[in-house]
């Protein structure tokens, strides 16, 4: 157990060490592959200057707002589709048709409607997680034991009561699965959208660094994206743990 934990540290540290040595000795061209120590220095400098925090906050805000805008209606519609066969029959063809479209392909259209401002960025994040959360929520409700609904109805639950005391808490584990999958997609989509048309955010930072040939800053942007993704996943895990104390 202890040994395998050390092994887990060994591979990234070893990888960085080999990179550093290869870059410094000239095996790798340091103009294209700056050594990790230089990337870290750039990262520190960009943090001190306030440039990096600014772009992180911009991207982070877009993700959080997009998440709320996408997840809340997705849960509501997903619960309704899971509970009611007619609603499911009505909406499922539409969902199945739109779900597989890569959301970034819709981005030009969104810019066309909403302009280059924040609204288009938040919307693309919301859109990219909406269907994932919806489908997971619906599957979560459909998978619930009939016995739970019988208990609710035997004690006189009305539709709203079944919604709030059975369908929502019962589907919550599946909702979190949808949110976690959605987080990955949200990062892909927001960075992609910022690369395409934006004047702020991590994607913009990477794109501008490319244009001025600042390879170390490009790597810094990638590193920040990775850390942001890891933090978001850890945050959702924590929230899931808090929201689902009843799970064995």
């Amino acid at each position: 157990m202890r040994n395998s934990r050390w092994l887990a540290v060994l591979s990234p540290v070893g990888f960085l060490l080999i990179w550093e040595l290869a870059s410094r000795s000239g095996v790798l061209d340091p103009r294209f592959f700056p050594p990790p120590s230089v990337i870290l220095q750039t990262l520190a400098a960009m943090t001190r200057s306030g440039e990096l925090p600014y772009h992180v906050v911009v991207s982070g805000r877009r993700i959080v707002l997009g998440f709320l805008l996408g997840a809340v209606p997705a849960v509501a519609v997903g619960l309704a589709m899971g509970l009611s066969r007619p609603v499911r029959s009505l909406l499922m063809p539409l969902v199945s048709a739109i779900y597989p479209i890569p959301k970034i392909a819709i981005y030009p259209l969104i810019i066309f409607y909403l302009g280059l401002g924040e609204a288009s960025k938040v919307s693309i994040v919301a859109l990219s997680i909406f269907f994932l959360v919806l489908l997971n929520t619906m599957a979560g409700v459909i998978g619930l034991e009939r016995a739970y609904f019988n208990i609710a109805r035997a004690y006189g639950a009305r539709p709203l009561g079944i919604f709030t005391t059975i369908a929502f808490p019962g589907a919550l584990p599946a909702i979190f699965t949808g949110l976690k999958l959605g987080m990955g997609f949200a990062l892909i989509v927001i960075v992609g959208a910022e690369l395409l048309g934006s004047d702020a955010g991590i994607g913009f930072l990477i794109w501008r660094s490319y244009q001025i040939f600042a390879v170390d800053a490009m790597f810094a942007g990638l590193l920040v994206t990775a850390v942001l993704g890891w933090l978001a996943t850890a945050g959702l895990d924590w929230l899931e743990h808090r929201a689902l104390p009843w799970r064995p």
Partner: peptide, 25 residues
């Protein structure tokens, strides 16, 4: 009031919340 066979409690509620369930409704 019904006592069911097998699955008869709601797993996302505590004992207290399960017992309160009918009263809450």
């Amino acid at each position: 009031a019904v006592v069911f066979q097998g699955i008869s409690t709601l797993p996302w509620f505590t004992v207290q919340q399960n017992v309160e369930y009918g009263l809450r409704l």
